[in-house]
Structure formats: C-alpha cells, structure tokens
Amino acid sequence: MNKKTFLRMLVGFIIVQAILSIWIDYTLEVGVEEEQGRFVIRNVENPMTIQERITEEFQPDEYRIEKGKPLTIYGSERLYRFFGFFSRNPNKAIYAFQLIRMIIIVDILLLVIAYLTRKKMSMIPTKLQLVFEMMYTFFEDLTRETLGKDKLHFTSYVLTIFLFIWTCNIIGIVPFPGFVEANSNINAPFGMGIMAVLVVHYMSIKHKGFFKYLKGYTEPFFPLAPINFVGEFSKGISISFRLFGNVLGGAIILLVISSLVRFIILPVGLNMFFGLFIGTLQAFVFTMLAMSYIAVEIFD
C-alpha cells in the first residue's frame, strides 16, 4: 500500500467519523467497569447534559465514579481481566484513564513521525525533514541566545518539551469522539512543571556547587529562607497552572459555544483560535519560561 492510498483512507475515515459524530453521540470509554472491576474498552451512548460534560471536563476522574450505567452499548465491548489488580475497590475507577490514553496516543504519534522522518535522511531534504530541520534550527538559535554557546545540548530537551506540549494541545482539534487535550487535566502540566523545576535545580547544583546552592536560599539574610524555599517551588506551580488554565478555559468555551450552535461552522473558527493559536503560544511560552529559569541559575 503506497502512501497516497493510506492518506486518502485516513482522510476518508476522519471525514466519516466527523459526520457520524454529529448524529451518533457516543463516546469511547476506556476504564474500569464499576460492578466487577474489569478493564473495559467500549463505545457507549452519551447520557450527559452539557452541564455534566463541563463538570467532566473539569474533574474527569472524580466524575467517572458517580456516572451511572450507560444506556446503550454500541458494538462489541472488550473486557480484560488484570488479576484483580483493579478490582480491589470495585466502586472506584482508576484515576486519569482519559489522560493516560491521550498521552499514549501523543507518544505513539510522535514516535511514528520521528521514524518516518529519520527513515531516509538525505542532503537534499524531503518535506518532512525540512520542517523538522527548520524547527530544530529555530530552537537551536533560541537556546544559543538564551543559554549561551556552550549549552547547545539543551536544544534536545527544549525541543522535546515543545513538541510534546504542542502535540498535546493541538490534538484536541481532531474531530474524533473522546479526543481531549491532555493538558486540560492538571496532572499532565503539573508533571512537566515538576520536571522543569528538577532540571533547573540540577543545573543550579551542577553550576554553583552544592554549598553555594544551599547558600542561595539565604540570599539577602537568613530569616527569608522559608520564603525563598516556597518561591523556588512556586515556579513549577506557576508555569503548570498557566498552561492548564489556558487549555481548560479554551476547551470549556468551545464546548459551551458548540452546544449553543449545534456544532455548525462556528466551532471550526474557534478551534483555529483556541487549538492552534493558543496551543502553539502556550507551548512556546512554557518552553521559553523553562529555559529562562535555567538561564537565571546559570548566569549570576
């Protein structure tokens, strides 16, 4: 099967799914069945109102516990038993399944793109290679400007953060039922914020030495040490909550306006703004801030 046929099939599948998702309001449910504690993948009818959907967007894990039995189940459901691992408390679903599903999808997507790009590298670049070379060059210049010439190996870290957050943000505009932005759950941005703060502290210890790093907490005079300590960790909270709030706010506005106009035309433009523009901007801002935090520690 050549590439053109595959792309045509993919586009056709997306269009059919998009058209179907207007009439058939089903969602893909991946999680734990409440009664017997079995892992389940199935398409269920969506028995929720708009208010409940917003609530689920805000707290997907807590809401899944209270949700009742689905009215209709489409197709065949696949049940897996995990040796009673999940069935310790059958009334509680395991947390954040939606988030984990989206993160796995994003990871597989990035791996496939990386494989396709690296499969045939040439001096005269193909289109895909050209796009990623431009992206790499842009971030290399950015790293050189921000962190200096001898820290160019940070480009891979920076570009990885950017690509992951960016893909997580713009995957919400794919019109599959059940696709959400992974960043609209607080756990994903918070994890990346913790990682960024850890890298900052590691670079600080490596650059200054451990005792000078500890001395940095008592910077003007000693009684301010607790405030400095809290301030260091509020860095991670600040950048992760910024990403989370922007993405979740966009998602809720999209949901409300889409249900007002019955999913016709207008959500496409809103998706362009909230998905593409805000998503790209916030991914870039997260990357730049993580880099600036490192730069503050490196340059005295």
Binding site: S238, F241, R242, G245, N246, G249, Q282, V285, L289
Partner: peptide, 8 residues
C-alpha cells in the same frame, strides 16, 4: 503570558 497568569 507571564502577566496573564493572575487572570488564569
């Protein structure tokens, strides 16, 4: 984006 954080 930094100034926006209080709004967020």
């Amino acid at each position: 984006a930094v100034a926006e954080s209080t709004g967020i």
